[in-house]
Amino acid sequence: MDLFPTADPHGQEARDMVAGPVREAVAAHRTDGTEAHVGGTAAVFSDIASAVDEDVMLSVGLGFAAALGASTLVFQHGAGRPGVDFSLPLVPALAAILGRFL
């Protein structure tokens, strides 16, 4: 089945349409025992946006943890300053991360 939306395939409207109503309609009307997929520019951009959103949060979290660990090694062990509190940057970072999900 071919569908030609009037929305710009590179725009947010087309990505929202593909991610929601179009995929739901295709899944609801597929024949039993078959697979149905939505393709095209908007579908590709929608899939990429979903994957990037999830991967970016993981990358940022891992990068932050690595930077915090490196800072701890440099200041507490390398510089001989065991009194430096490495958890201080953790408080605003956790607030920012939790704020995104609340």
Results as ranks from 00 to 15, higher is better:
M1N: 11
D2L: 12
D2E: 12
D2N: 12
F4E: 15
P5E: 05
T6V: 07
T6F: 02
A7M: 06
D8I: 11
D8T: 03
H10M: 08
G11F: 04
Q12F: 04
A14N: 00
R15C: 03
M17C: 05
A19P: 01
G20R: 08
G20E: 09
P21H: 05
P21K: 10
V22R: 02
R23K: 15
E24W: 05
A25N: 08
V26Q: 05
A28I: 14
A28G: 10
A28P: 01
R30H: 05
R30V: 00
D32I: 00
D32H: 00
D32Q: 04
D32P: 01
D32S: 07
G33H: 00
T34Q: 00
E35K: 04
A36N: 11
H37P: 00
G40K: 03
G40H: 07
T41P: 02
A42W: 00
V44W: 02
S46Q: 12
D47K: 03
I48E: 08
S50D: 13
S50F: 03
A51F: 02
V52E: 10
D53M: 02
D55T: 14
V56R: 13
M57A: 05
S59H: 08
S59N: 07
V60W: 03
G61H: 05
G61T: 02
L62S: 13
L62H: 09
L62C: 08
G63W: 03
A67R: 13
L68R: 05
G69E: 09
L73C: 09
L73A: 14
L73S: 08
L73H: 09
L73I: 15
F75A: 08
Q76N: 15
H77F: 12
H77Y: 14
H77P: 03
A79P: 00
A79K: 09
P82Y: 11
V84L: 11
D85T: 09
F86Y: 12
F86R: 15
P89L: 07
L90Y: 04
V91M: 04
P92A: 03
P92D: 04
P92C: 05
P92V: 11
A93V: 15
A95Y: 11
A96N: 09
G99A: 09
R100S: 10
L102R: 15
L102T: 15
